[in-house]
Design a protein around this nucleic acid. Structure first.
Lengths: 206, 206
DNA sequence: TAGATTGTTAATCGATTAACAATC
DNA sequence: TAGATTGTTAATCGATTAACAATC
């Protein structure tokens, strides 16, 4: 299991999981049913499930729902809590900090950092100068960047100095990092680009 | 132009644009230089630029920076402002509402809606019951969903009734929509999945 | 001119989808 | 048994990358 899990397949798993968790009064779930519910190709789902499930599915029945939920959550790392730090406690940063959903994803924002004294409270939001110390002590490996674009690279460099291994970047810039560091861009501008393009094409048709 | 623009290519354009806008004292930019700066393949960038630029690039020089910025922004729809409405004025919703960056992307959040009376102020946040009326009058085609997962499908149905054509969905669920509606999922859970997986693989190596 | 860069055609790669035998 | 579903091998598709002639 987890052998042939492509990037895309991995990104589909949370979708499966959220759907499966909402099912009630169901003991088994089959790939065709799941595929139909999420508008996905049946074979694709079958392959994904085969890759994540520890026990094979049962012909004519499918997969035991309870086990499947467990297996997917496990692969997604939801079962072991990981601490993260966040840099940039502006509106977006604070929205993320107060998002309870992260617990479900195995992520806990242990602390946030900012340079603006007016947002620093010494309880959850600290001055950036304290970052390295805290990261080292808590062995934190995930950093969330929610600072303005202009400051993002510098913050990124700082996080790497602190021993961060994976970065979740909300700033609309490309970050330069050593190849061992994973940067996951939450690229809202790209999403908007796809929306705009769709609307324009509709307009051009008419 | 804009003929062979794949989904992925389109998603790269905002990256190019943000980089190009930050350049100073530069008149021409070439594909190889841009590619190197963003850690992308040179041919890929060359093809993308050829697809978006209205005038061909100059051998040995590249593309006129000013024109290139204009052309990309144009394709991305940043030059014509589009109104959007947002449903769910919680933390995330309000963070998006107050994000000034959208103006740059040609998006304006014209109004937000919520069911919770305590957040409704009658100025920017209105009761959901007013949604259809406002959408119709303002000819709004973009809807942003920032409600909890459990409410998302219902909100989505409401938006479609209001004449919305494209949906930017922040709720971690798959939305069922007619095929003519574009749904762009801002799937934070998927991003986190990729981060977690990367960390786990590092752990397994050691 | 020589050399960098362009645009484009061909080869490669990876992911999705189709086909099918095996199983309960 | 018959039929639905599984796992897997092969075919297709789309995007990325390589190769190369054309251009300034």
């Amino acid at each position: 299991m987890n052998a042939g899990l492509s990037r895309q397949a991995l990104a589909r798993l949370p979708l499966y999981l959220s759907y499966l968790k909402n099912l009630e009064e169901v003991e088994y779930i089959s790939a065709p049913v799941l595929a139909a519910s999420l508008n996905l190709n049946e074979v694709q789902v079958r392959k994904d499930l085969a890759a994540v499930s520890r026990r094979p599915g049962l012909p004519k029945k499918g997969f035991l729902l309870k086990d499947l939920i467990y297996d997917i959550a496990d692969i997604l790392g939801y079962h072991n809590e990981k601490d993260a730090i966040l840099v940039g406690a502006g509106q977006l940063g604070r929205a993320l900090m107060s998002y309870e959903g992260f617990a479900e994803y195995g992520i806990r924002i242990a602390a946030a950092f900012d340079t603006d004294p007016s947002v620093i409270d010494g309880k959850t939001i600290f001055p950036v100068s304290k970052m390295k110390d805290l990261c080292g002590r808590m062995k934190i490996h995930i950093g969330v960047i929610t600072v303005p674009a202009a400051a993002a690279q510098q913050v990124c460099d700082g996080l790497i100095e602190c021993g961060i291994l994976a970065i979740w970047n909300f700033a609309p810039v490309h970050l330069h990092t050593p190849s061992s560091i994973l940067v996951q861009n939450e690229n809202m501008a790209s999403s908007l680009a796809l929306l705009s393009n769709h609307l324009r094409q509709l307009r051009e048709l008419s």
